[in-house]
Deep mutational scan, measured.
Amino acid sequence: MATGGRRGAAAAPLLVAVAALLLGAAGHLYPGEVCPGMDIRNNLTRLHELENCSVIEGHLQILLMFKTRPEDFRDLSFPKLIMITDYLLLFRVYGLESLKDLFPNLTVIRGSRLFFNYALVIFEMVHLKELGLYNLMNITRGSVRIEKNNELCYLATIDWSRILDSVEDNYIVLNKDDNEECGDICPGTAKGKTNCPATVINGQFVERCWTHSHCQKVCPTICKSHGCTAEGLCCHSECLGNCSQPDDPTKCVACRNFYLDGRCVETCPPPYYHFQDWRCVNFSFCQDLHHKCKNSRRQGCHQYVIHNNKCIPECPSGYTMNSSNLLCTPCLGPCPKVCHLLEGEKTIDSVTSAQELRGCTVINGSLIINIRGGNNLAAELEANLGLIEEISGYLKIRRSYALVSLSFFRKLRLIRGETLEIGNYSFYALDNQNLRQLWDWSKHNLTITQGKLFFHYNPKLCLSEIHKMEEVSGTKGRQERNDIALKTNGDQASCENELLKFSYIRTSFDKI
């Protein structure tokens, strides 16, 4: 039985969820670079991206490699990797027998973001014989899940209580170790020597080791999670996991709180800001991140802002960003909400898709409305799209047979046209069989910064309504002859009103 693990408890099935942008060198404390989270699957090609990484700022997932063999891993080693800020997950990587050479110096898994409450997941690794993470000293947050690894031993010899604050939620089941077939031998045991430290858990006094050649490092209890030197002297209180010299914040392997210019500090002093819960960055760093993602459509890219001495992905609820200094300031009234469309555009074809934009005031991208039916549609669209004030790209209304009016965009005031449909149009209306009105132009103002209007096959939309939009939106004169079809717009509506004058002759039985 794995020490510190839980057996036999019912657990939810383990679901495996399925960018080499360097964020800056980590400095003297770390020998390499800070790398983003990685999802490495199918083959070993991307694994080489770990070569210079000291910190993975995010998670590391290595999974679904069915053609790899043990010899493929023999020359692979990433000794610079010290810390993973989120979680480490391995799933069905064939041929991998140990992690001792792959990650010989991995010391800390912070667990800032977890995989279903777990910071370390080893699942269905069919050839893994031992973990071998002999320098792993601290899992700051989260638990361990090690399950269905039929060859995995050296679990009962690990004292997880020396690595985690609590072992109650560890789930370590259905491994070879369960069948008591392992016969784990710690260093020196074969020669009758006791080389590794022994600890007591559940009444068992057991030597602690990761492999037959690597003991588990056990520091004096007084050192807590700070770690200790090879001689057993406690590291500085700002260290986490390990250090090369005692009581020196510049000799830590990793930091308990924050890293700044080669030393570990309790908090980031001005003019620095907390970033990702582990390091200090200056304003320029946060500003660069903001600008890199301002026009990016890459998933996970955030326009970072500053709030409460932190550089964070977005302002919290009730705050909006001051564009001059990136500071989050309290909103006066309802907060603006910028919604970034991942692929640059979004099609609204149902109430469900409209709900995804609920509360958005600025759309960074283009909207395509293609709704053919739905219950209580006008009210639903207004509830979900009615706060949109600005669209950076274009607005396209296409084959939306259920629409009679666009009044559900009740606050839309600006279409920038930074991206144009077919390279020309910022407003595009095609084949809307029941569209009769755009907006009530006596109450609604709309500016279209650039781009043209396109109207074709809107049989109940009168040309007068379209011409009014040209005047109000500032697009009059931009359109070419064929942009607004004269014969297919309003051709099934009563669009022309003329005053009919009647004269009559009164007659009676005795007068003409």
Results as ranks from 00 to 15, higher is better:
H28T: 10
L29V: 06
L29E: 13
L29T: 14
P31F: 12
P31T: 12
G32V: 12
E33I: 09
V34T: 08
M38G: 04
M38S: 02
M38K: 11
D39A: 12
N42G: 04
L44Q: 04
R46M: 15
L47S: 05
E49Y: 07
L50K: 00
C53S: 01
C53F: 00
S54K: 03
V55T: 04
I56F: 00
I56R: 11
H59V: 12
L63T: 08
L64T: 10
M65P: 01
F66S: 08
K67S: 05
R69C: 12
E71G: 10
D72L: 03
F73G: 08
S77M: 14
F78E: 01
P79S: 06
K80G: 10
K80C: 04
I82Q: 06
I82T: 08
I82A: 07
M83C: 09
M83Y: 03
M83H: 07
I84R: 00
T85S: 06
D86T: 02
Y87D: 00
Y87F: 03
L88G: 00
L89G: 01
F91P: 00
R92V: 02
V93K: 00
Y94D: 07
G95S: 05
E97K: 07
L99P: 01
K100N: 14
F103A: 01
P104G: 01
V108R: 05
V108N: 15
R110D: 00
G111N: 00
G111E: 00
G111W: 01
L114G: 01
F115P: 02
F115K: 06
N117G: 13
N117V: 07
L120C: 05
I122C: 06
H127Y: 03
H127A: 12
K129Q: 11
Y134M: 13
N135M: 15
L136K: 01
L136W: 00
L136P: 00
N138Y: 14
N138I: 13
I139W: 00
R141L: 07
G142L: 02
S143M: 13
V144P: 02
R145T: 03
I146C: 03
K148T: 02
N150T: 08
N150H: 06
L152W: 01
L152V: 04
L155I: 11
A156E: 03
A156Y: 15
W160Y: 06
W160M: 11
S161R: 10
I163K: 02
I163R: 03
I163N: 01
I163E: 01
D165Y: 14
S166Y: 09
V167C: 14
D169H: 14
I172E: 06
N175T: 13
D178C: 10
D178R: 07
N179R: 14
E180L: 11
G183A: 08
G183C: 12
D184W: 15
D184A: 11
A190C: 06
G192L: 13
G192S: 13
T194S: 11
N195E: 14
P197W: 05
T199C: 11
V200G: 15
N202C: 06
G203Y: 09
G203H: 10
G203C: 05
F205L: 11
V206F: 15
V206A: 04
R208Q: 15
C209T: 04
W210P: 02
T211F: 09
T211V: 10
H212K: 15
S213K: 14
H214W: 14
C223T: 01
K224Y: 15
K224V: 08
S225F: 13
H226N: 08
C228P: 02
T229P: 07
T229V: 06
G232H: 06
L233S: 12
H236R: 02
S237P: 11
E238K: 03
C239R: 00
L240E: 02
G241A: 11
S244R: 12
S244Y: 05
Q245L: 08
D247L: 07
D248K: 03
P249I: 04
T250A: 09
V253D: 15
R256M: 06
N257K: 07
D261E: 02
G262Q: 07
R263L: 11
R263H: 07
C264A: 00
V265W: 09
E266S: 15
P270Q: 09
F275S: 03
R279E: 02
R279A: 09
F285R: 02
F285V: 03
C286S: 04
C286Q: 03
C286R: 02
Q287E: 15
D288F: 06
L289R: 12
L289Y: 13
H291E: 08
K292C: 10
C293S: 02
K294Y: 15
N295Q: 08
R297A: 12
R298L: 10
R298S: 12
G300P: 12
H302Y: 09
H302S: 11
H302D: 07
V305C: 08
I306P: 02
I306N: 03
N308F: 11
E314K: 11
P316F: 02
S317T: 12
S317E: 11
G318E: 06
G318H: 06
Y319R: 04
T320E: 08
S323F: 12
S323A: 12
L326P: 05
L326S: 05
C328I: 02
C328W: 02
P334G: 06
P334L: 09
P334T: 12
C335L: 04
P336K: 07
